[in-house]
Design a protein around this nucleic acid. Structure first.
Lengths: 144, 144
DNA sequence: ATCCGTGCAAAGTATTTGCAACCTA
DNA sequence: TAGGTTGCAAATACTTTGCACGGAT
């Protein structure tokens, strides 16, 4: 798998080892690209082909993948840490739409924030490297 | 105190009772306007004048205040729920600047998002009622 | 007097950690 | 072989809940 090759290289670069568990966890994230899986969900999917994996390994691996910049940790205030592949964000950052009524999460894929971030650098002397934007409101279904 | 009067009215409106603990917790939030206190910090401050209050009451009251729209719950991914007075947001919504290096949190007080939210309504049929924006990057100090 | 609110402690839930066995390099 | 990695279980950390007592209306 393509993902494995990159992972192997990146792990070597940081002196870490390439293991079946780490590969399997990344595979799950690749297979579910576009979703925002919780640790528990990732654990469940990984167990399908890796029955004896422990959830501590999932937590540790997700921490590692985030440190390597392979994943982004997301937070929708539902009590779970969620993850997505960071690659998707190379071109654009996501804006998440969270419905206050049904809790559904969808995405906007536009980035109109460059202007704002430029102003922040000028006025606050703060260099923006990444952002997480959560819009709370009512989705199409719940507005009916 | 001014805050007490509003609280009393709002509590009555929802069939809830006005108690010393609820008043004291709101007082702490008013005294620390502009900060983003964690539940634990609020608990510590309230105990100064209310030595025997329990932390469960703080959690329950903050939940109530949020339901009443008096406070906003914030989340800076540091493992704590944080709160601020919602009033501050009547005029403008906050954008938080979170430094990846030192963890400091500051604020931008501009709202250039109206245009984007209008587009979201048109393209995603999603009606934005509120938003939380977290910019991750490097603050002035850490860029030196 | 009623019954909501409180404090305490126990329970819950997500996540982290210690450690011996295991596996990658 | 050496040392990073794993699985298990115990430990943490934050938050919620059950219940009897206390206080607001």
């Amino acid at each position: 798998m393509l993902g494995d090759f990159d992972l192997k290289k990146q792990l070597k670069n940081c002196g870490c080892r390439f293991t079946g568990q780490r590969s399997a966890i990344l595979d799950v994230l690749v297979e579910h690209k576009g979703e925002h899986l919780s640790t528990e969900e990732i654990y469940t999917y990984v167990k399908e082909n890796n029955a004896h994996i422990g959830i501590a390994t999932v937590y540790r691996t997700l921490m590692l993948l985030e440190r390597l910049g392979i994943t982004n940790k997301l937070d929708f205030d539902d009590g779970f840490s969620r993850y997505e592949l960071a690659k998707e964000n190379e071109v654009h950052l996501h804006h998440h739409l969270i419905c206050s009524s049904c809790g559904s999460v969808s995405e906007v894929k536009e980035d109109l924030l460059d202007k704002l971030e430029q102003q922040i650098l000028e006025k606050n002397k703060f260099l923006v490297k990444n952002h997480i934007i959560k819009f709370y409101g009512l989705c199409e279904n719940c507005r009916k």
